[in-house]
Design a protein around this nucleic acid. Structure first.
Lengths: 208, 208
DNA sequence: CGGTCCAGCTTACTGGAAGTAGGTTACTTC
DNA sequence: GAAGTAACCTACTTCCAGTAAGCTGGACCG
């Protein structure tokens, strides 16, 4: 019944925490955050509820730990992908590619992070998710700024929101279907974003 | 203490329901769904909790009624805006404009519908919100299809998701800030979407 | 006018899950 | 083998969604 199959063995804290996060990620993403009780997670870990409170403070704290881990991994993957790109187009293409590769290989964590009811866990979880979005948006704004230094700030911010929203929703669509592969989906996304941005820029500078 | 200021008067069902939905929309969007207790809504209506259960079945049911009302109003506004457009570009422009006008004039309902924790209310609420997105996506696909009859279906679906995500996130950004007006924001959105779509189409038909 | 019917309303409860107080057990270290 | 502490447990409290069962005031009928 326990995940490790050892019938109730003591475990150092770090290892137990990792186990709890793995179990939580699985159950939360399967059944949803609200429909999962802390007792259930504890039981699947072969442990009692207060242990989870000891290590994560609250049910929301456990969720936030899962989200934060996934978020950090994603940020690392995308920033690593972008370094070394020589043109904005290439940077965008690589970033989008890394983004999709992550969503593709971490479907459970991904749908957990973005599934609506995760944000409902509480203010800290909602802030964590929003922080992920704004992190992406800030990177995008910086990228655009390098490309069009004299565009109005609000326009770039708006464009970044468009990119964030498009990435988020297309990735959710992607992980929920089977027909389209990650590369093709990333290509659709990249193409529409790229031309959308060029359109915005041309509109802002009709004379050039 | 009651919304109507009449100290506890009986009220016909339809009127009481409307009052409950108005109060619920206000408190939910202020404090969040989870942090609001049914007792509190009932009290602000000058009524006791079982009345809400009598009329809406559950806390989630009350929320769904609020969402559905807003969703229907939005759908009506956007479809009305699109009829009579003679080109796809004009249709998209009008639709986006109506979308933003709605978000602008119904900020409370809008952030309630899209704020993360609303989807956490339960499966019915989540389905209601997702249905709104898919309704918009289906309309978009039909619009694109009329424009590029031979494009692969999955590409149009992906493009629709991009549009939906971009609209959603930009509208949330919009209602949370003051610097940019509704028309300007709608223009940013329209421009980037339009060029993004054209880019996708050109990529799919390089020879034409 | 007096009776009866029912929509609108209430009080007072149950059940279940989050979170906690305080104590117990087994492993490590000297 | 005793001390100290990390890992763990049982047994609570609290809070809130949801429910059972009955009360009330006004509309309509005779």
């Amino acid at each position: 019944m326990t995940t490790t199959d050892q019938p109730r063995k003591r475990m150092p804290r770090a290892e137990r925490e990792r186990q709890m996060m793995a179990v939580a990620e699985e159950i939360f993403s399967e059944r949803g955050y609200l429909a999962t009780s802390v007792d259930e997670i504890a039981e699947r870990c072969g442990v009692s509820k207060p242990m989870i409170y000891e290590y994560f403070g609250s049910k929301e704290g456990l969720l936030v730990a899962c989200i934060r881990a996934a978020r950090e991994e994603l940020a690392q993957a995308t920033t690593a992908a972008v370094v070394g790109a020589t043109t904005p187009e290439e940077a965008l293409r690589r970033g989008v590619g890394a983004f999709f590769a992550f969503a593709d290989s971490h479907r459970r964590a991904w749908s957990l992070m973005l599934s609506g009811d995760t944000a409902a866990a509480g203010p800290v979880a909602a802030a964590e998710i929003e922080a992920g979005r704004q992190e992406q948006a800030a990177i995008d704004v910086a990228l655009f700024r390098a490309f069009v230094p004299d565009a109005p700030q609000t326009m770039l911010e708006a464009a970044a929101q468009v990119v964030v929203g498009a990435c988020e929703r297309l990735s959710l669509w992607y992980v929920a279907q089977d027909e389209v592969g990650a590369e093709e989906a990333a290509d659709y996304l990249m193409t529409s974003l790229w031309h959308g941005l060029r359109g915005l820029i041309e509109r802002a500078h009709p004379a050039e």
